[in-house]
Design a protein around this nucleic acid. Sequence first.
DNA 1: AAGGCGGGGAC
DNA 2: GTCCCAGCCTT
Length: 345
Amino acid sequence: MSFSQKILKWYSEHKRELPWRSTNDPYKIWLSEIMLQQTRVAQGTPYYHKFLKAFATVYDLANAEEEQVLKLWQGLGYYSRARNLHATAKIVVEEYKGKFPTTYRELKSLKGVGDYTASAIASICFNEPEPVVDGNVYRVLARYFGVDLPINSTKGIKYFKELAREVMDANNIRDYNQGIMEFGAIQCAPKKPYCLLCPLNNSCVALQENKVSALPVKLNKTKVKNRFFNYLVFQDDTGKTMLEQRKGRGIWQNLYQFPLLESERILDKSEIKALIKHQKGIPKHNSTLLYNEQPIVHKLSHQHLYTKFWILNTEDALKDGVSWENISSFPVPVLIADFIKTYKI
DNA sequence: AAGGCGGGGAC
DNA sequence: GTCCCAGCCTT
């Protein structure tokens, strides 16, 4: 039996019932694929249901406000996915009359749809024989064929895509692509795969050469940057606070937060008061209270955010204030959502 | 070619 | 703590 036949057989015996496995509707497949980029099935699944409930069709998504899309996406991370999702929905409605394009090449031109996602949609929805290469496929191919090219190098990316094309089953691409990914996720897992009862164990190079734990090879150590956030939580007598929308190119683009003063290190109360003094447009306030003595460390994959929340009471009613009842309608980062949750108690 | 971009679960 | 998840985009 060939490699692809063994994958297909394993898949037929072990496939999970997942919500997007019961449809070939490109809208639903596209939605699931965007959500599952760098995201585990268990984390993405509730969002998939939420989105389909809110936006039954691509028209509903295209007609929504970006703020509503971001609000539903809140907590899933990589928010450019949500912004691109919304932009692509508009493109599909306006330029494709609401019908998704049906080829790999056209799909890949959509915002947020790269090589992997275009291959996934083209193969699953339209049976186009294009191999998917995601993190699971890299692992399966690197181990089975004993390839030690780094999976995140230019040469490696090209090599694995070509290898994937050579070994795929073009006649069963829909099941084969999902099968090899499922095989990587369940059987050929990153740590401690159970090679003893693997259907490929008599021909797996990595297993024969005792290199299973060493493959795949991945370069690149993401260095973590430390940042120091001081959030100013205003409170006026009418029970309102202030929010601002993050603009520019960094993290959490277009999400909301309390007014932020970033510093080069952790600040104490006298230092933050001095810093506020030199800022323009800070409302007058008569008290400055530190909410959390120990900075909250919010960890992103590439940044550690040491965060202090300062409670500032104002005498005058805040201009453009947001009531604490309405605050939950704004899309906010998990760091802010967690604060709001504990602060209200 | 390299770096930015989230959050969470498994170990 | 480390690794990595149905990756993509910008520079």
